[in-house]
Design a protein around this nucleic acid. Structure first.
Length: 797
DNA sequence: GGCCTGTGCGCG
DNA sequence: AAAGCGCGCACAGGCC
């Protein structure tokens, strides 16, 4: 297919598409004439382009067989035509659309995500010098993505079409309008051995980058600028605050508590939780026309990059620009910078940074013992399975390879697949499917995958992260995303201790001789919040005084099931599922296939021997639940209304979740959007309850110990340093002065290391969590009765 | 060796 | 045929 050039083309813009689609290839022979073409023409009009401004071409000239993504060699086959088109047409602007266009323009196949290249001017290899004036080339998403359902991309494409490169800033100008009076932005870089290498400082007047090893006066330069500042700012600034403190820089106490802190990462997430990238440079470039500084400085973003290998001048420039870039991003987010909700969020993030520092203390013998056990079980099961596979005639067999498992069970044994995978329609090999086969080999496979996960994720994956402090004890910090999820939950990673099974949680022990681990969790937090939001007093009664799931089961079924019996699990599944809009068919299927009654047992719950009758019964049960709690229905209808009119839902504290559905109920994926809209206010408020607990308990404990936040942080940093440097030298663990410390958060659950002399801390923690004063200050109408259970033991869980 | 997507599974 | 939500991590298999 040839390029399409309109009559009397103004040479303003050339659009580069991917490859011809069916319509274009076989009917019109003109690029962009299908559904996505119509959308594109609409967007071009909205962006102010006249029809004679825009020419079109494709990265690939013909349609790849079976509509597959063209391989890089196919892209390169067509690339000379693309270059020749660019040179012959000499447009002022070129906009590529989609990943394939990006591959063709850059002549590179890997490391390409549109999100990372939006807003940058692209260098196209091969056209340098061939034209009197080089066209400005940039990239955006393909409109086909919008047509296929990614409706949120439409606005971004429009934004990219409207880009004006005349106001392009080659590099950060020194002066920028101030975000707020007294803001100082800070960035730090450090080496793999944790030594501080660079400090970047920026305010509305100037930006500078310092190499701390070359500039002897770095500390006094930094200190004097910090002293003049009221607010400290940065991208993920709480890590930098710890780093400055660790290196003896004095910090205002309001920064340590998180009070006068402005974090561009947090505010960006608060403003739009659906951004494709929260990386500093990408955030800035998608908003503000300037030169990129990370890719350009041959410093490609790699997680494993050791900054100490990078030349000093490059590092200094990078910290300078990183510190500077925070300011325009904050300015973009100005409207929510000093709102009570934003302050609350920053306070939580500050406390979370200390929880990371506290870390968990690991019983190394327990850990190694478990690893040994898992490994042996795994070898044993693998040997058994290998014999089975060989006897069945399979020459190659790995129990974690789904293809091999399918070959064994469904080809060799001729078992009937209980289901199929969603996209590729392959026979299902899930635990549930294997369980329903009732076959000894399927049972072996279930057991194998359980031990495989324990061994690989919870032993091999965790081992390199543990720092051994003594022969018996290790230190394992837990890392968190302070606003990690779209509902505002904080997520843990590297390792993710939030998904550790009970058996592995046992490796966490107290750092104190005779100390205990206390897990304090809110009882049925989300259900109470749902009852509160739905204004359903009866539902609230059941989850506060009326026996919870057991009480509801009694009303629905006429008897009180014991915990973890099939009837109990079924009612729990009914209540949880229905509250978040699970429909009758799926509810019936869940029971039919089997529910988990203990970590190792699955039980089928069949209300009738035939599926048809079972479905009827399950539907009746679900309806009778909904009829008894009419608030739920009203709540769901209200969320749908909110979703359809605003394309977003808000939580009680004012957090927003964007769920664009421009075509109303006809929007592709609408059912999922509706469920998310129903879930969000509940899960989000639950995370704010626990967030409040994080900051309130810390404050209460410190005030009880007569310790300032500054003293506490100093103590934590000194202790961490001892942990990291005393490897194998001491027989006993270096300890804090007597203090109960929080070291983990699991959504509705805070985990503490309780000092033996501070048993009374249990009551303090429980009462503070139940009172949630910070949340009540933020949300005066909050009056949900909260109750907290403590599980206290010498191990976690 | 690294990246992407699909699938599966642990926790709340 | 089919409509609970939120995560992170591991592996397979394709690609460069």
């Amino acid at each position: 297919m040839r390029p399409f050039i309109p009559k009397g083309w103004t040479k303003k813009l050339l659009i580069v598409g991917e490859a011809p689609g069916e319509d274009e290839d076989e009917r019109t022979h003109i690029p962009f004439t299908g559904d996505s073409g119509r959308l594109l023409h609409r967007l071009l009009r909205r962006a102010g382009y006249a029809p004679d401004d825009v020419a079109f071409t494709n990265a690939n000239r013909c349609r790849p067989p079976h509509n597959l993504t063209p391989s890089m060699s196919q892209v390169r086959d067509c690339r000379p035509f693309l270059l020749r088109t660019l040179q012959a047409l000499a447009p002022r602007y070129v906009i590529g659309m989609g990943r394939n266009a990006l591959r063709a323009l850059l002549n590179r196949g890997s490391d390409l995500a549109i999100a990372n290249y939006r807003g940058r001017l692209l260098e196209v290899p091969g056209i340098d010098g061939a034209l009197p004036e080089k066209p400005k080339v940039w990239i955006t998403y393909h409109p086909a993505a919008v047509v296929r359902g990614a409706v949120e991309l439409e606005e971004r494409i429009l934004e990219d079409l409207r880009r004006k490169w005349t106001e392009f800033h080659p590099h950060p100008p020194s002066a920028l309008p101030s975000v707020k009076k007294g803001v100082l932005s800070v960035d730090t870089e450090y080496g793999a051995d944790r030594t501080l290498l660079n400090v970047g400082l920026a305010d509305s007047e100037s930006a500078l980058g310092i190499d701390v090893q070359e500039e002897r006066e770095w500390k006094s330069i930094t200190q004097s600028r910090l002293n003049r500042a009221t607010y400290i700012a940065g991208h993920s600034i709480f890590g930098d605050i710890l780093k400055l403190k660790e290196n003896g820089v004095g910090l205002k106490s309001s920064w340590i508590t998180g009070e006068n802190v402005l974090c561009s990462l947090l505010t960006s997430r608060m403003r739009d939780e659906t951004l494709p990238s929260y990386e500093l440079e990408n955030l800035l470039l998608s908003r503000y026309p300037t030169q990129p500084w990370k890719l350009a400085s041959s410093l490609v973003l790699k997680k494993t990059h050791d900054m100490s290998c990078v030349p000093s001048t490059v590092r200094s420039e990078r910290t300078r620009l990183d510190a500077w870039a925070v300011l325009p991003i904050l300015r973009e987010n100005k409207s929510l910078l000093r709102t009570p909700l934003s302050r609350f969020t920053h306070r939580i993030a500050a406390t979370l940074s200390r929880i990371e520092l506290v870390g968990a203390v690991i019983d190394l013998r327990e850990f190694e013992g478990l690893g040994q056990k898992y490994g042996e079980e795994l070898l044993d099961l693998e040997a058994q399975l290998r014999v089975v596979a060989t006897n069945a005639g399979l020459t190659e067999f790995s129990p974690t390879n789904d293809g091999h498992v399918r070959a064994l069970l469904y080809d060799k044994f001729k078992l009937k697949p209980p289901g199929y995978t969603k996209k590729r329609r392959e026979p299902s090999v899930t635990k549930l499917a294997l369980n329903s086969l009732n076959h000894p080999v399927a049972e072996l496979l279930i057991k194998y995958s359980a031990y495989d996960k324990l061994f690989r994720t919870n032993y091999l994956g965790v081992r390199p992260l543990i720092v051994s402090v003594t022969d018996l004890l290790g230190y394992l910090p837990f890392n968190f995303n302070p606003l990690g999820t779209e509902t505002g939950r904080r997520s843990s990673h590297d390792p993710n201790s939030q998904n550790w099974p009970r058996s592995i949680r046992r490796i966490v022990c107290s750092r104190y001789l005779g100390g205990q681990i206390g897990a304090f969790d809110y009882s049925s937090l989300e259900m109470r919040i749902m009852a509160w939001l739905a204004k359903d007093d009866k539902l609230m009664y059941y989850f506060t005084k009326g026996g919870g799931y057991i009480g509801i089961a009694k009303e629905l079924l006429g008897f009180e099931p014991k915990k973890d019996t099939p009837a109990y699990v079924a009612v729990k599944s009914l209540v949880l599922g229905t509250d978040y809009n699970m429909q009758e068919w799926k509810f019936a299927k869940t029971l039919w296939d089997g529910v988990k009654t203990s970590p190792t047992t699955w039980q089928e719950i069949r209300l009738s021997p035939t599926w048809r009758e079972h479905l009827k019964q399950a539907a009746r049960l679900r309806r009778s639940y909904l009829d008894r709690f009419p608030g739920l229905k009203r709540y769901m209808e209200a969320r749908e209304e909110e979703l359809l009119t605003g394309g977003a839902v808000a939580s009680a504290t004012g957090r927003i979740r964007h769920l664009p559905c421009r075509a109303g109920r006809e929007t592709p994926g609408y059912p999922h959007l509706l469920n998310q809209a129903i879930n969000f206010p509940v899960q989000s408020l639950a995370s704010d309850v626990t967030g409040s607990a994080l900051i309130d308990v810390e404050r209460e404990l410190l005030s009880y110990y007569l310790m300032s936040y500054d003293e506490y942080l100093t103590l934590l940093l000194e202790t961490q340093k001892k942990y990291l440097t005393s490897q194998g030298k001491g027989d006993i663990l270096p300890t804090y002065s007597p203090a109960t410390v929080c070291f983990n958060e699991v959504h509705d659950n805070l985990v503490f290391d309780v000092h033996p002399s501070r048993v009374k801390d249990h009551d303090l923690i429980r009462e503070t969590m139940q009172a949630a004063p910070s949340l009540k200050k933020l949300l005066p109408g909050f009056d949900i009765p909260l109750s907290v259970n403590a599980k206290i033991s010498d191990r976690w869980e």
